[in-house]
């Protein structure tokens, strides 16, 4: 195994991540306003902004899903229990002892097992929950009628709200964990430049050097 500076986040993935970040922040901000927590933007314009942003995010997710499946990146997100306990132990204990992060990124596994499990839950449950409830909310008039419809909408709106708060909690932990290990800058940098230090097998290294030399850099 050699540790090399490899491009692990191609341009689309980085765009996906940051565009998603901006859209989710806008959605959270306008959404909390629509829920009545603040009135920085008047209700009408906030509804429009929230709706347009949500539709943009949905479109982005369609492209993201397509990209994940066509490039095989989806495999990165398959959860595994292997190595999860050491990672959990590290965050709960080892980090205070100055231990090294037990997970070494490898070429086809850029997320540690805990990360992968979190993203799996996010992509398969939380995000679908927010867009299913959001679309139901938006399309209320196609299915909702009378006071039963109003009651159903109340349930849907609260599920939407709850999911939004789960996402907000995720963001807090997600951003915080960037400070753990190699530090905030080191962790954010790959998502900007695309390059990260990865353990490569001799075969992977040889393959990349021969076929995709652009994905290797002397130093990150």
């Amino acid at each position: 195994m050699t540790n090399r500076c490899v491009k692990v986040y191609p341009r689309f993935e980085r765009f996906w991540h940051w565009a998603q970040m901006v859209l989710i922040m806008v959605l959270l901000f306008t959404g909390l306003g629509l829920n009545g927590l603040h009135s920085v933007i008047p209700f009408g314009p906030a509804v429009m902004l929230h709706t347009m942003t949500a539709l943009a995010l949905l479109a982005l997710w369609v492209f993201g899903a397509f990209w994940s499946f066509t490039t095989g990146t989806w495999r990165q997100f398959i959860p595994t229990t292997k190595g999860m306990i050491p990672v959990a132990r590290f965050y709960a204990y080892g980090v205070f002892k100055g231990e090294e992060h037990p997970y070494q990124k490898i070429f086809w596994r850029k997320h540690n097992p805990l990360q992968a499990a979190t993203y799996f839950a996010l992509k398969w449950f939380i995000f679908p929950a927010i867009w299913v409830t959001g679309l139901a909310y938006l399309s209320y008039n196609f299915w909702g009628n009378g006071s039963d419809g109003a009651r159903a909408l109340w349930v849907i709106s609260n599920l939407h709200l709850l999911t939004a708060y789960v996402i907000a909690a995720f963001i807090i932990v997600h951003v915080y964990l960037l400070t753990v290990g190699h530090g905030f800058r080191q962790h954010v940098k790959p998502m900007i430049t695309g390059y990260d230090d990865i353990d490569l097998t001799p075969e992977q290294e040889a393959y990349l050097e021969k076929n995709e030399p652009g994905r290797l850099k002397p130093e990150c």
Binding site: F90, G94, V95, F96, K97, G98, E99, E100, H101, T179, V180, G181, H182, G183
Partner: peptide, 8 residues
């Protein structure tokens, strides 16, 4: 614990 960043 004095290991602000954690890890080495």
């Amino acid at each position: 614990s004095g290991k602000r960043k954690g890890g080495q």
